[in-house]
Design a protein around this nucleic acid. Sequence first.
RNA 1: CGGGGUGUGGCGCAGUCCGGUUAGCGCGCUACGUUCGGGACGUAGAGGCCGGGAGUUCGAAUCUCCCCACCCCGACCA
Length: 490
Amino acid sequence: MAKEITSRKENYSQWYNDIVNKAGLAENSSVRGCMVIKPYGYAIWEKMQSALDKMFKDTGHENAYFPLFIPKSFFSKEASHVEGFAKECAVVTHYRLKTSEDGKGVIVDEDAKLEEELIVRPTSEAIIWDTYRNWIQSYRDLPLLINQWANVVRWEMRTRLFLRTTEFLWQEGHTAHETREEALKEAELILNIYADFAEKWMAMPVLKGLKSPNERFAGAVETFCIEALMQDGKALQAGTSHFLGQNFARAFDVKYLTRENKLEYVWATSWGVSTRLVGALIMAHSDDNGLVLPPKLAPIQVVIVPIYKKEEQLEAISQKAHAIMEQLKGRNISVKFDDRDTYKPGFKFAEWEMKGVPVRLVIGPRDLENGTVEVARRDTLEKEVLKMENIDEKIEHLLERIQDNIFQKAFSFRDENTFSVDTWDEFKDKIEKGGFVWAHWDGTSETEQTIKDETKATIRLIPLQRDGDTGKCIYSGKPSEGRVVFAKAY
RNA sequence: CGGGGUGUGGCGCAGUCCGGUUAGCGCGCUACGUUCGGGACGUAGAGGCCGGGAGUUCGAAUCUCCCCACCCCGACCA
């Protein structure tokens, strides 16, 4: 039929595109590389936002908003930061248009050239640290714990809906602290929040770790990350939390008076997750029938489809449906009654399946007679007929089981696709097939780069605790302090 | 930036080689009726500067030249 999607086996990236398209999450816009996030996709992002926002606030962070534009000179104050982002910055050079000579269009007014060009933020460290200089004077102003929800622009060469777009939405936290230890603790706190969010809300298991110098954020001393495994065996960086040391404080001259009345540079962190998480969510759970959403992030958790022949039947069913809706809303379950009479039930089943609604209730004449309702779950596609009594409680439990089940499924998948190897041949073989590959590495950038050139695999993370499992680097044979996780990545 | 490809109703395409009345098809859309426990059907409709410009010709979606845009594959990346 027209609505069918490509199978994962046939063409994984086409499958992904089909889901984004047919579930109505997003579409390409007229602007190259930029997407339009459609209402259903945006609703998922809003659910993510509200959960994360609460977690940030519960740990003492406040929201603020900084400008979209960054003066070029600010941007260049931190050397490695510029180097990392310079290649992908959009630059504003003029502030006015005028009608063209032939009167048919508009052109840039060359007389309206900006004295100093503005960079469209690829991230906000520069403008924020320039501001923090004025906000921070003494240890009493610390810690400064700020987050902002914003859009950023990185001029990417190749884009994919949600996973990599020129403009994307994210949150970026920027904190300032008295001590190195405190800043490190903050970076790890956020890392744990990200991991918790991924596992408890997105039902997506993640590994936590440290980035190698090659993969580290431009301007950071350490980058912590969470990494998830997608169904095609590729890794996806789902969130990063950076310990910035005093790099930005030095670059922007942000000093504070210590308790001992001495001037010191402050210690910093920054951290972010983006709309890329929506892409991760899709690739973590969905199947060949469409999107599969974890109940906790599903904009619609339960859909009710009526089956009827005559108008009177619909009326009786509507009554039942509305009663159920009231009960479910009382338990904070979002529910939609799909009483459109322009589509047949079969069509609606397929459509809600495509959109990943976790639970579908079907009420028809038979159910009215028997006091039952048909309950179908999206994750397993199983159907059962339940008595109407305590239906709200049953559904609440079912949603919990679904949340749990899709996490377990993703967890087993990762488990089955995680390997530990000791030889170069084994390494190449496993990397080729996909998955996380634990292997010894000599700790040098050169080796990492060579491995990347030869296999396209990168070090996704270095585990936080290295358990003394020393060995020999799979590539160079030199000593290794412990295994690190390699994978091909998005 | 290299290499390949494609531009035709909202979407997916045919037609282009070999020029010829009114540019087709499927899906979707609108109205009405019949249907309704896994993607319904009938009837009647609406919807096109055939990517843009310049040529050749009695005549161009079709031939020639020049632009433009987008997609795929590589180098870069949350």
